[in-house]
């Protein structure tokens, strides 16, 4: 069993882990990630980021896409958020 990659840089390509599903929770009025024993409740920008994690886009491309939607996107916010979700095994990363 290999060690999961959790370090994120601009070339990382994040995607949802196989056991995680991305859903809109009408009760909470929030997007959530459903794992086997956890529900991860996302805020608006968090949900936008997760929605762009298709395994094809790099982190840099995700940031570029977000710049078209928001003013003053902070790259480091996005990379840190991706790393935190990867550390919780909600995201898988392929680097390079």
């Amino acid at each position: 069993m290999g060690t999961a990659i959790t370090a994120v840089d601009a070339t990382s390509r994040p995607k949802l882990s196989r056991h995680v599903r991305f859903r809109f929770d009408r009760t909470r009025d929030r997007h959530v990630l459903l794992g086997p024993e956890t529900v991860v409740v996302l805020n608006g920008t968090g949900a936008d980021i997760v929605g762009l994690c298709d395994g094809a886009r790099t982190a840099a491309e995700i940031v570029a896409e977000l710049r078209g939607r928001y003013h003053q996107v902070v790259d480091e916010d996005v990379l840190r958020f991706l790393a935190r979700l990867a550390a919780r095994r909600c995201l898988e990363l392929s680097n390079g």
């Binding site: 929770d25 459903l34 024993e37 996302l42 920008t45 968090g46 939607r69 928001y70 003013h71 958020f81």
Partner: peptide
């Protein structure tokens, strides 16, 4: 007629809250 694009919202730091639940609950929600 000049069109005015809707202003983009300001960036807000992405956040999440993790809630531990029983497996059958996430299966149901899913």
């Amino acid at each position: 007629m000049e069109s005015v694009a809707a202003p983009s919202p300001m960036w807000e730091a992405p956040e999440f809250d993790e809630v531990a639940v029983a497996p059958e609950v996430t299966m149901y929600l899913g």
